[in-house]
């Protein structure tokens, strides 16, 4: 009987079109829609903090340079992953990530918890020429990042777009985005205080690339790398992993 019906279907182009749409829609609907309705999909983390404008700019540079092509940001629920990189990643840790950067390949190591692991100085040296510090590395160098001034003027627009999409940036944060980006990279400047005021005392304020006279793309990228895994300590709670909860003052 099926065959007879199919013969009929083959005679109608439009019928075929609708049949294809029907058959192909089910999977996506069943797998995607419940991710919004099942509450436990994204864990609770009251201490979850936002990306500062500088970190967000750094994240966009990470995206621009295609870092995700070789580095994952996802520690899987596998013992060797956890023992090498730290507690397995939780969904809530990428709650504000648009898009997510979990990655699909580890030509280089996972970066989900690289924040605070190495010094800013090391990151700058490593990004400028990885083989200066890791002779075995096959990562490209990014010397131009330290030369390029960061475009801070548009950061307000970036925060505004995120706000529209539901990321809880306040209007004050949007209005001060450019200033906060400069303040975070210039500890001695008048702008620095506003950053900790708006984003919390745990925010790392530092002259990331060692040069305070201008805010570069290197500053932004290093500030982003240094925050990876440190937006919330949810992943450290209720696990047998040996790592301690990071001290926010560290």
């Amino acid at each position: 009987m099926r065959e007879l019906f199919h013969r009929k279907l083959e005679r109608s182009a439009l019928g075929f079109v609708f049949a294809i749409i029907a058959a192909a829609s089910v999977g996506g609907i069943v797998e995607i829609a419940p991710l919004f309705t099942i509450d436990e999909t994204v864990e609770e983390a009251p201490d979850m903090r936002l990306y500062t404008p500088l970190e967000l700019a750094g994240r966009n540079i990470y995206i621009r340079e295609g870092c995700y092509a070789c580095h994952s940001q996802m520690i899987r629920t596998l013992r060797d992953d956890v023992e090498r990189y730290g507690p397995y990643s939780l969904a809530v840790e990428s709650k504000y990530d648009r898009p997510m950067l979990w990655g699909s390949k580890r030509t280089g190591p996972d970066l989900a918890r690289v924040g605070g692991k190495y010094s800013d100085f090391w990151h700058v040296a490593h990004l400028t020429n990885p083989r200066d510090v890791v002779p075995q590395s096959n990562m490209p160098g990014y010397p131009w990042l330290a030369r390029n001034a960061l475009d801070v003027d548009d950061l307000g627009l970036h925060l505004q777009a995120q706000q529209t999409l539901g990321v809880p940036y306040s209007d004050e944060m949007v209005a001060n985005a450019a200033r906060d980006a400069m303040g975070q990279a210039s500890p001695d400047s008048a702008f620095a205080d506003g950053v900790s005021e708006r984003y919390g005392d745990a925010t790392q304020i530092s002259s990331f690339d060692g040069v305070t006279t201008q805010v570069t793309e290197m500053d932004a990228l290093v500030s982003y790398l240094q925050i990876l895994g440190r937006l919330t300590d949810a992943a450290y709670r209720g696990t047998v992993a040996e790592e301690q909860v990071p001290n926010p003052n560290n």
């Binding site: 995607i32 840790e93 709650k95 990530d97 997510m100 777009a161 995120q162």
Partner: peptide, 17 residues
């Protein structure tokens, strides 16, 4: 530059779907 409407874990599912 644009930001996707899909956040975090839902974006992961949409991207690989």
């Amino acid at each position: 530059k644009s930001y996707t409407v899909w956040p975090g874990v839902q974006d992961a599912m949409v991207q690989w779907w």
